[in-house]
C-alpha cells in the first residue's frame, strides 16, 4: 500500500476529510481502527540513555486522523517516547534505541532518511512555549521560509491563515512585528502551535502542551486540537487525565517505561483490562 501519494506533500490545499470512517463519532473510530491507514506504527521500540533503559519494547499504532493521548505517572518515559517519534533524542549524548518506528510505510530510523523532511511532517510542540527571538509574524513564517513551502509573496497570507486557524489572529493582527515574549503564556503556546502547523505536518506530537497554561488557554488549545483532526494525526502526552478524556480518541497508558495498555477512551477509563491502569485512572497511583 502506498499512502504517500494520497497525502499532498505541500498541503496548500487543505486535506479533505474524505475518509468516511474518521468523520463519524469517536466510538466508530475506536471500533474501526484496524481499517484505517496507520500514520505511525511503532514496533518493539526500546530506548536508553547511557545504558539506562528508559522505554522498553513499545508497540503502538497511530491511526490516521486520530488523537492519541499518552498518559502515565511522571518519569514513565512518555516524553522520551514522544520525542523518539521524530528523532528529537538523536542529539542527546548517550541515546541508543532499537526497534522500528514507521511513518506510513517509511522507516523513521532507516538509512538515508531526510531528518529535515521528517520533522516537517512530524511536528512537535513542547511543554513550555518556546517562541523564537523574532517578531510574531517571523515566528510563524520562519518554518515556511526554511522549507520554501510557498513563494515569498504568499508567506504573509499563509501566516495569517495559520494564526486565524489557532485563533490568535484577532489578538495579534495589529502587532505582528512585536516581540512574541510580550504575549501571554497561552498566546505564546498558540503561536508555537501556529508555527508548527505552518509547515503542514501530517503528525503533530504534543508534549504536555497545556501544563504551563491557565484553564482558559488550555481550553483554547484543546478546542483547536479537536478541530485539527482528521487533517492531522495528533499524539498528546499529558499528565491530566481529564484532558485525555476530553480530547483523545485513544489512550495509551505508560508505566515504568512500558506500554501497559492501550484502548479507546471509554475502555481505558471505564473498563481497563490491567490492574495498574485501573489504579492509575482512579488516582491510586501516579
Amino acid at each position: 500500500m502506498n499512502t504517500v501519494q494520497a497525502k499532498p506533500v505541500v498541503a496548500e490545499v487543505a486535506v479533505p476529510a474524505s475518509n468516511p470512517a474518521v468523520a463519524g463519532p469517536e466510538l466508530e473510530v475506536a471500533g474501526t481502527t484496524g481499517a484505517l491507514p496507520k500514520a505511525m506504527t511503532v514496533t518493539g521500540f526500546t530506548g536508553a540513555f547511557s545504558g539506562k533503559t528508559i522505554i522498553e519494547d513499545i508497540s503502538l499504532e497511530l491511526a490516521e486522523g486520530s488523537i492519541t493521548a499518552i498518559v502515565g505517572p511522571s518519569g514513565c518515559g512518555k516524553s522520551t517516547f514522544l520525542r523518539s517519534l521524530n528523532r528529537m533524542n538523536d542529539r542527546i549524548p548517550g541515546w541508543k534505541c532499537n526497534g522500528s518506528v514507521r511513518f506510513y510505510d517509511q522507516d523513521v530510523y532507516g538509512q538515508g532518511v531526510d531528518l529535515l523532511s521528517l520533522r516537517r511532517r512530524v511536528g512537535m510542540v513542547f511543554q513550555r512555549p518556546n517562541p523564537f527571538p523574532m517578531s510574531i509574524e517571523e515566528n510563524v513564517a520562519c518554518g515556511i521560509k526554511a522549507h520554501r513551502l510557498v513563494p515569498r509573496s504568499e508567506v504573509r497570507r499563509r501566516v495569517q491563515d495559520r494564526l486565524e486557524e489557532v485563533g490568535l489572529w484577532k489578538a495579534v493582527h495589529d502587532r505582528l512585528h512585536d516581540s512574541p515574549f510580550r504575549l501571554s503564556g497561552g498566546q505564546q503556546q498558540l503561536l508555537c502551535l501556529a508555527r508548527s502547523l505552518a509547515v503542514s505536518p501530517d503528525v503533530l506530537l504534543l508534549d504536555e502542551p497545556t501544563s504551563s497554561l491557565d484553564p482558559i488557554s488550555t481550553e483554547a488549545v484543546e478546542q483547536l486540537l479537536k478541530e485539527l483532526v482528521p487533517d492531522i494525526t495528533i499524539v498528546i502526552v499529558t499528565h491530566n487525565l481529564a484532558q485525555a478524556r476530553r480530547v483523545a480518541d485513544r489512550v495509551a497508558f505508560f508505566m515504568d517505561g512500558r506500554l501497559v495498555e492501550t484502548g479507546t477512551v471509554q475502555q481505558i477509563f471505564e473498563d481497563p483490562r490491567r490492574i495498574e491502569t485501573g489504579q492509575y485512572v482512579s488516582g491510586r497511583i501516579g
Binding site: 511536528g123 512537535m124 520562519c142 508555537c192
Partner: peptide, 8 residues
C-alpha cells in the same frame, strides 16, 4: 529544539 522540531 523548537526550531529543530520544525525541521530546521
Amino acid at each position: 529544539e523548537g526550531a529543530r522540531a520544525l525541521g530546521m
